[in-house]
Amino acid sequence: MSDAIISIRNLHATADDGKEILRGIDLDIPAGEVHAIMGPNGSGKSTLAQIIAGRDEFEVTQGEIVYRGKDLLGLEPEERAREGVFLAFQYPVEIPGVNNIYLLKAALNAKLKHHGQPELDAFEFLQMVREKTRIMQMDESFLNRGVNEDFSGGEKKRNEVLQMLVLEPTFAVLDETDSGLDIDALRVVADGVNSLRSDDRAMLLVTHYQRLLDYIEPDVVHVLADGRIVRSGDKTLALELEERGYDWLRDGAAA
């Protein structure tokens, strides 16, 4: 597919201990589409997300990931980010001593520089960040706290989406960004994500809950089990999973 933002071919990956976690993933996400990945705990969803972002804790033993025509696996994590790949972490890391707003600024400037664009001046930057902070319904005081430091679970998730809104990635992976959110926060996060949907971007949502997909309608839903995509379908697949669980698919995969 020529207009694919990302295309993953036969991806195999093992953890440090040699255990194979991803066992042949194939996935294409064309520009403009949102795909969802669902699947049982431990099936490899976060591993896939982290490999896309460049975590070197896992070893890719086979296969490739092509991102906008480039070999993604050959790039350092920071290069991927500057090229427009973004991961909203399932467990965002607390970094006391680094200001949230400093990180936003450093991250955005790194990206602008990479693309040969001028940095925003301090005023423009602050205006822009304040605007996005409002969209996320976060208090501005969060900007001057340490990155995720002592944030509640839900606040961390909002902060991930805030970073995403500031960086405007071409391809965003959201790893259970909906987990731990109250109903209102879910809506805020979904609005934030939807505001980024566009014809030249793509997204991958990892989620356990069909509810998120009421707010962010996916084009395709995949089921990941035991390191493989065992079924793909439209959004009604999520409803079916809600009703039937995963066992019927796992059995099918084995057969």
């Binding site: 920071e78 970094i95 680094v98 990479h114």
Partner: peptide, 21 residues
């Protein structure tokens, strides 16, 4: 990794985390 995944180069990320400490 978190900082690098946001586009911060490795050496800068190290310097930043050292300063943060």
């Amino acid at each position: 990794f978190y900082l690098r995944s946001r586009g911060i180069g490795e050496r800068t990320a190290r310097a930043l985390l050292t300063f943060a400490f």
